[in-house]
Design a protein around this nucleic acid. Structure first.
Lengths: 245, 245
DNA sequence: CCTTGACAGATAATCGATTATTTTGATAGT
DNA sequence: ACTATCAAAATAATCGATTATCTGTCAAGG
């Protein structure tokens, strides 16, 4: 605890990392922090799809040096949100109808597969996590007028889908699904501020989750597939409506 | 600036096009070249699975500075061959029985799915590419005594599997499959210098390819699934035999 | 006119040195 | 001996400056 004797200074290893006694859980290197900020900027649409990322400009915008900037961008490449070409720099991944349709198709295949495996292998803790994620999601309201609620909802929604498949015991598969979810969320964040009127998304989530913990494999998988498919269809319509592509 | 290109994962310049010598390699950046060299070093087992990658040592070994070294390593993270932790550096991804089994399972799911889509959507050019890849593979002999023939065979084998599914029109899916193939190849390179006696791998490849161009969906998919499964089983046995894990 | 090539400005890649963090090793107190 | 604490060494992260590459523009030649 408190150092008592002399010792010049006593920088008790855990020195104040930030003035407000902030929790120093994960945000460590500048590169990491940048990756988070950039990811949010891309998924939220703040950085336009397909646009070039000028290193000098970005460096000034974020007040960092090249090294951590490249570090952060490198991670977004793993996430599929940024593309890179030798000597030609980075650019935000483009969006397109074909891209959206592929994402939807792959989510239908992989996420459903992962859910089935989770139901087959998941333990009681997994069940608990699913119910908690469902509850938290359903208790959070989405108000198009207040962007911060949208952001919060997106986070919980993402968390729900990931929790649902977290019992599958397949790290690589989870990585793929997380990636697809990332890509998909960008489309929703940009094009869909509210759900289509004929859907009750909360109920859809509940049906999937309850079927899952009841180990009703075919039912739950079918519900999830439809859920994903409907979202894909909605997004496609909005894309077409807004004249993109 | 107007978005123009395809969506995420469109081109992913990844392959080392070293099939015909390496005279004109003055183009790539040091980072790119390093990525290739490191990838080969990891897949071939030269860099042991699970081992730490000391930046200083690597810097001296490869005679480069930190920046391109990090650049190269970052790409291998995308490939799943290297892991990274803030402030704790890089290490070669570990191998394990569970990991091998997941890779095999996912290949059975994804690669077969991609093959089915290729047969559904592939054009005549795709058919031609498949037959060419098959021919080149089958005409190349594998001699355990001469490592360079193994390397060459691996390259053509990889090429064959990728060509087979290249007609699916799904860049992201292809990216996933390429990644899984990478991971799988490391196991084969390290543990399997020759095929199990009861297999005729050339014939297996031929059956898959001919079924594919004949658009015999169920047959070809089934053959591919068995092909992948057998390789997985073989590898598992070798892993167990050699006392690993 | 159109093509070609060279120049200049913009941008990316790399380097060497500096700063921050983690790990190791030694010391003192119980 | 055992543990806790601090200092030194090892290692990773970052920076500022330099070098290499690309891109657009403009003039000379066809």
């Amino acid at each position: 605890m408190v150092p008592d004797h002399d010792g010049a200074f006593a920088p008790t290893t855990e020195d104040a990392p930030s003035s407000s006694g902030f929790l120093d859980d994960g945000k460590n290197t500048i590169g990491s922090q940048l990756a988070s900020r950039l990811r949010e900027a891309i998924i939220s649409g703040e950085l336009q799809a397909g646009s070039k990322i000028n290193l000098d400009k970005a460096r000034k915008t974020f007040n960092v040096s090249l090294s951590p900037l490249r570090e952060g961008l490198a991670r977004l490449i793993s996430d599929g949100l940024v593309e890179f070409e030798d000597n030609r720099g980075y650019r935000v991944s483009s969006i397109s109808l074909a891209n959206l349709e592929e994402i939807t198709t792959l989510r239908e295949e992989f996420e459903v597969f992962a859910l089935r495996e989770s139901m087959r292998l998941g333990d009681v803790e997994w069940e608990g996590n699913v119910m908690r994620a469902l509850h938290r999601l359903n208790r959070t309201e989405r108000d198009a007028a207040r962007p911060e609620t949208l952001e919060r909802w997106e986070e919980l929604h993402r968390e729900f889908h990931l929790t649902l498949i977290s019992g599958c015991g397949k790290p690589i598969l989870l990585h793929f699904c997380r990636l697809l979810l990332n890509l998909n969320d960008r489309y929703r964040r940009v094009f869909l501020t509210r759900t289509s009127g004929d859907r009750n998304v909360s109920q859809e989530h509940s049906e999937i989750a309850q079927g899952a913990v009841a180990r009703d494999l075919d039912y739950s998988c079918d519900m999830l597939r439809q859920h994903i498919h409907r979202t894909g269809t909605n997004l496609r319509n909005h894309l077409a409506t807004k004249g993109i592509l």
